[in-house]
Simulated scan of single mutants.
Amino acid sequence: MKAVLEEFEGEVARLVPDDGSDPIHVNLQYLPDECTLGDVFEVVYQKKDTLRIQELILLSNEKEQRMERMKAKREALLKRTKEQQ
């Protein structure tokens, strides 16, 4: 599952999953030092006995790709609005 780093709250980071499920709260010590708001992570769950272990993998190019897609959508909407006027 992919999740976007939305906010830092003290020593905890909040990630919002793409699938609309509840936010994931992670202690900052488990995030890479270089991460910033808007970064996208692959969240992997594994079962070990009764504990659930999360692995967070920073998807380095995903943030930029999403920003480019949003920019293209905005430009298309602006163009369509101008054509309708």
Rank of each mutant, 00 (worst) to 15 (best):
M1I: 09
M1T: 11
K2F: 14
A3P: 10
A3D: 07
V4I: 15
E6Y: 06
E6L: 07
E7Y: 12
E7D: 13
F8W: 14
F8I: 14
G10C: 05
G10D: 06
E11C: 00
E11V: 00
V12Q: 05
V12S: 00
V12C: 01
A13E: 04
A13M: 10
A13L: 08
A13D: 07
R14Q: 07
R14N: 02
R14L: 09
L15W: 00
L15I: 04
D18Q: 08
D18I: 00
D18R: 01
D18G: 01
D19E: 11
G20D: 10
G20C: 12
G20T: 10
G20N: 12
S21E: 12
D22V: 03
P23G: 07
P23L: 08
I24E: 00
H25Y: 15
V26K: 03
N27D: 09
L28K: 10
L28T: 06
L28Q: 09
Q29W: 02
Y30F: 12
Y30P: 01
L31G: 06
L31N: 08
P32V: 07
D33S: 12
D33E: 15
D33N: 14
D33P: 09
E34A: 14
C35T: 12
C35Q: 02
T36S: 13
L37G: 11
L37W: 09
L37S: 08
L37T: 07
G38V: 00
D39R: 02
D39V: 02
D39L: 01
D39F: 02
V40F: 03
F41V: 08
E42C: 09
E42S: 13
V44R: 14
V44S: 11
Y45Q: 14
Y45S: 13
Y45I: 10
Q46S: 15
Q46E: 15
Q46N: 15
K47F: 12
K48R: 12
R52F: 05
R52Y: 03
I53A: 04
I53S: 02
I53F: 01
E55S: 15
E55D: 14
L56R: 05
L59Y: 10
L59F: 08
S60N: 13
N61S: 12
N61Y: 04
N61R: 10
E62H: 10
E62V: 09
E62L: 11
K63I: 05
R66W: 00
M67S: 08
M67H: 04
M67E: 14
E68S: 05
R69W: 00
R69H: 04
K73E: 15
R74M: 07
E75I: 04
L77E: 05
L77D: 01
L78R: 14
K79C: 02
K79M: 08
R80N: 08
R80F: 03
T81M: 11
K82T: 04
K82E: 14
K82G: 07
K82W: 11
K82C: 07
E83C: 01
E83S: 07
E83G: 02
Q84M: 13
Q85L: 14
